[in-house]
Deep mutational scan, measured.
Amino acid sequence: ASVAVIAAGTQGNIFATSALRSMRFLQILRMVRMDRRGGTWKLLGSVVYAHSKELITAWYIGFLVLIFASFLVYLAEKDANSDFSSYADSLWWGTITLTTIGYGDKTPHTWLGRVLAAGFALLGISFFALPAGILGSGFALKVQEQHRQKHFEKRRMPAANLIQAAWRLYSTDMSRAYLTATWYYYDSILPSFRELALLFEHVQRARNGGLRPLEVRRAPVPDGAPSRYPPVATCHRPGSTSFCPGESSRMGIKDRIRMGSSQRRTGPSKQHLAPPTMPTSPSSEQVGEATSPTKVQKSWSFNDRTRFRASLRLKPRTSAEDAPSEEVAEEKSYQCELTVDDIMPAVKTVIRSIRILKFLVAKRKFKETLRPYDVKDVIEQYSAGHLDMLGRIKSLQTRVDQIVGRGPGDRKAREKGDKGPSDAEVVDEISMMGRVVKVEKQVQSIEHKLDLLLGFYSRCLRSGTSASLGAVQVPLFDPDITSDYHSPVDHEDISVSAQTLSISRSVSTNMD
């Protein structure tokens, strides 16, 4: 405001104040949320940038038409019409005319000016109207692209899951042992070998009828009888010197917790746990005396209480009078009846079946994303299906024409109403129809010849004498029936064969 007042002088105070007050009108834009329509302006900018070359070309040609039209109309009207006294007036008329506004304040009066105005109007309006069409088509394409992008975003994750499931299904095939990355992934998420051994031990116990592997080994086996189970490696608790092959000598807290839970599941009659010990102070733990958990001091820290809870689970003690015997301790020893080589084939089979199920689920979810969402998608899918159906029908028609023997030239002739090819031409065609016709002709010829021969033979049998045999009239074959199959017997006289037959029969009768 200060700059405006200084620039306008003393009389500019009122002007500056009114100008600043008129800017209050811009507050109405906040009512229509114009300040939060950044996406709309961004869309407009992207459309203009995408079609910038077309817009520049249309505007450039339109500007050239405007300059030439205004100049030529000015030359034609400057002497006869006072409205075109300057080139600026003519340029104003050209702008209003070519933009199809047409105020009518300035019009050419001479015939030359009117002809020039009409010609440049028809030429220039087309170029001035091009930017509107370019922007409209650009907006339509952009909206369609955003629509497809939205659908693509919805299909991206199911497609990625389907590709991942397909690759993992491919890589978990037993015949592709060189693909090891997927197996490394499952090695990292699978439970430890100790848990798998416990699982298979329970399965084997159920197969043995509820007997433990130790009891199965204690059962008497006759001499020479084959053992029911192959000899396997035996594993004891981590306190002993022997372990399962492939295990580490260090046992983690999870393994100890699972070991304690498995020992508690063996039965309360074979294992008696004394009350857990509780320390009397955060600094020292008295293991010899058993106290109640309700006497825990409230001033303990979080670490002390955590250690106390761990001691409740991981440090059970047995009383002296209830101490288990050596046999019970041997039964409680952890027996590992299986090795990694025995378990891994079954584990890989389970993983393979899981990968198949996940692949089928991913495939079903991806197919669900291909379903249409709204009416536009339904129409688009219907149009695509219609085009596909037309293509299939056209391909089927082409194959039928190839089989029947109607080529493209014959199809055009039928469409024009011309006469089709004759039967002889159809026979000569190298097509399925021509071959079928040729075979039918040959079969008819053979059938006719057989009928003639059978009739001749029956007449010979009825006559009974050589004289009557020679008097029999043998009809000749019709050459038209034989089609294109020409037998060497067709052109010979059958009477010669009949005479030869009669001579042979007379000779045979004389010999008798």
Results as ranks from 00 to 15, higher is better:
419 K>E: 10
182 T>A: 05
304 D>H: 13
262 S>A: 09
511 M>I: 14
348 K>N: 13
187 D>A: 09
415 E>D: 04
228 R>P: 04
487 S>C: 06
453 L>V: 09
249 S>T: 14
238 P>Q: 12
375 V>M: 15
377 D>E: 13
354 I>V: 03
310 A>G: 09
236 H>P: 08
251 M>K: 15
462 R>C: 04
444 Q>E: 12
178 Y>S: 10
192 S>Y: 06
402 Q>L: 14
287 V>G: 04
510 N>D: 08
191 P>L: 12
506 S>T: 04
253 I>N: 05
504 S>F: 07
342 D>A: 05
290 A>D: 13
226 P>R: 07
496 V>I: 05
266 T>R: 04
228 R>C: 08
512 D>E: 13
279 P>A: 14
282 P>Q: 07
376 K>M: 11
219 A>S: 13
380 E>K: 08
346 A>S: 09
417 G>R: 08
303 N>H: 13
347 V>A: 10
264 R>W: 05
483 S>A: 13
491 H>Q: 12
253 I>S: 11
351 I>T: 06
410 D>Y: 15
433 M>R: 08
257 I>F: 01
337 E>D: 08
286 Q>K: 14
184 Y>D: 10
410 D>G: 10
250 R>W: 05
407 G>A: 14
271 Q>E: 04
490 D>V: 09
479 P>L: 04
380 E>D: 02
319 S>C: 12
502 S>N: 06
433 M>V: 14
386 H>Q: 08
304 D>E: 15
232 V>D: 10
391 G>S: 12
215 E>A: 12
396 L>Q: 02
225 A>E: 11
364 R>S: 08
309 R>P: 12
385 G>A: 06
347 V>G: 14
216 V>A: 10
212 R>P: 12
386 H>Y: 12
421 P>A: 15
485 Y>S: 04
404 V>G: 07
216 V>E: 13
304 D>Y: 15
194 R>I: 06
255 D>H: 03
462 R>S: 01
382 Y>N: 15
246 G>E: 11
419 K>R: 05
262 S>P: 06
493 D>E: 12
182 T>I: 02
241 T>S: 12
438 K>R: 10
188 S>G: 11
367 K>E: 02
242 S>F: 10
471 A>G: 09
454 L>V: 10
430 I>L: 06
502 S>R: 14
212 R>Q: 13
363 K>R: 14
309 R>G: 12
490 D>N: 14
205 R>Q: 07
351 I>N: 09
258 R>L: 03
258 R>S: 15
228 R>H: 03
422 S>F: 11
202 H>Y: 09
288 G>A: 05
344 M>V: 10
207 R>G: 05
438 K>T: 12
283 S>C: 11
254 K>R: 10
422 S>P: 13
319 S>Y: 05
432 M>V: 06
390 L>M: 01
477 F>S: 04
411 R>M: 10
247 E>A: 13
473 Q>P: 03
242 S>T: 14
375 V>E: 15
303 N>K: 09
467 A>S: 04
493 D>N: 10
301 S>T: 02
434 G>R: 11
203 V>M: 06
373 Y>D: 02
211 L>P: 06
193 F>V: 06
480 D>N: 15
168 R>H: 05
193 F>Y: 11
231 P>L: 05
183 W>S: 08
313 R>G: 14
177 A>V: 09
373 Y>F: 15
252 G>C: 13
393 I>L: 03
507 V>I: 07
467 A>D: 08
408 P>H: 13
184 Y>S: 09
406 R>W: 03
191 P>Q: 08
285 E>Q: 10
276 P>A: 10
393 I>M: 02
361 V>G: 06
498 A>S: 09
217 R>L: 09
281 S>A: 14
186 Y>F: 03
230 P>L: 08
213 P>A: 12
511 M>R: 05
280 T>I: 15
334 Y>S: 09
210 G>D: 09
284 S>C: 07
336 C>R: 07
358 K>M: 11
166 A>G: 09
408 P>S: 10
250 R>G: 05
274 A>P: 14
305 R>L: 15
178 Y>C: 12
280 T>A: 00
412 K>R: 04
501 L>R: 08
225 A>G: 05
439 V>G: 08
436 V>E: 06
466 S>A: 11
204 Q>E: 11
200 F>S: 12
271 Q>H: 09
261 S>G: 11
461 L>M: 04
225 A>V: 09
245 P>R: 06
182 T>N: 08
179 L>P: 03
215 E>G: 05
189 I>F: 10
232 V>F: 14
233 A>G: 15
306 T>I: 10
193 F>L: 13
254 K>Q: 07
168 R>P: 01
323 A>P: 07
239 G>C: 04
284 S>I: 09
319 S>P: 13
496 V>D: 08
332 K>T: 07
293 P>R: 07
265 R>Q: 07
410 D>A: 14
218 R>W: 09
442 Q>L: 14
354 I>T: 12
378 V>G: 14
351 I>M: 08
259 M>R: 00
335 Q>E: 07
295 K>N: 15
274 A>G: 15
293 P>T: 11
348 K>Q: 15
341 D>N: 10
200 F>I: 06
207 R>H: 06
424 A>V: 14
340 V>L: 09
253 I>L: 14
416 K>N: 02
305 R>C: 14
308 F>Y: 08
382 Y>F: 15
362 A>P: 02
379 I>F: 13
428 D>E: 11
494 I>F: 14
485 Y>N: 07
296 V>E: 15
348 K>M: 05
508 S>I: 04
491 H>Y: 14
479 P>S: 04
487 S>R: 06
213 P>S: 05
263 Q>P: 11
440 E>V: 14
461 L>V: 11
242 S>Y: 01
240 S>G: 06
481 I>N: 03
490 D>A: 14
327 E>A: 07
223 D>G: 07
428 D>V: 11
354 I>M: 12
223 D>H: 09
457 Y>N: 14
486 H>Y: 04
450 L>V: 11
255 D>G: 06
248 S>T: 04
455 G>C: 06
505 R>P: 09
248 S>C: 04
356 I>L: 12
370 L>R: 02
287 V>L: 03
444 Q>R: 13
321 E>A: 09
429 E>A: 13
437 V>G: 08
447 E>Q: 10
329 A>S: 13
273 L>V: 15
343 I>V: 13
293 P>A: 07
496 V>L: 06
286 Q>E: 10
455 G>A: 14
342 D>N: 14
389 M>V: 02
503 I>V: 05
291 T>A: 12
341 D>G: 14
381 Q>H: 03
480 D>V: 05
277 T>I: 03
261 S>R: 10
263 Q>K: 07
500 T>A: 12
242 S>P: 12
487 S>I: 12
350 V>I: 07
213 P>T: 13
311 S>T: 04
285 E>K: 08
205 R>P: 08
438 K>N: 12
352 R>P: 02
172 T>S: 04
234 T>N: 10
396 L>R: 01
491 H>R: 07
399 R>W: 06
449 K>R: 03
209 G>E: 05
175 S>T: 08
219 A>T: 10
302 F>I: 15
420 G>A: 08
372 P>T: 01
268 P>T: 01
401 D>G: 14
475 P>A: 13
322 D>V: 15
352 R>L: 04
277 T>R: 12
320 A>G: 09
249 S>I: 15
431 S>R: 03
306 T>A: 15
173 D>E: 13
181 A>T: 06
494 I>L: 08
499 Q>P: 12
445 S>P: 06
297 Q>P: 15
359 F>S: 02
466 S>L: 11
397 Q>E: 02
388 D>Y: 14
344 M>L: 11
352 R>H: 02
400 V>A: 14
440 E>A: 15
423 D>G: 13
246 G>V: 12
475 P>S: 15
274 A>S: 04
232 V>G: 11
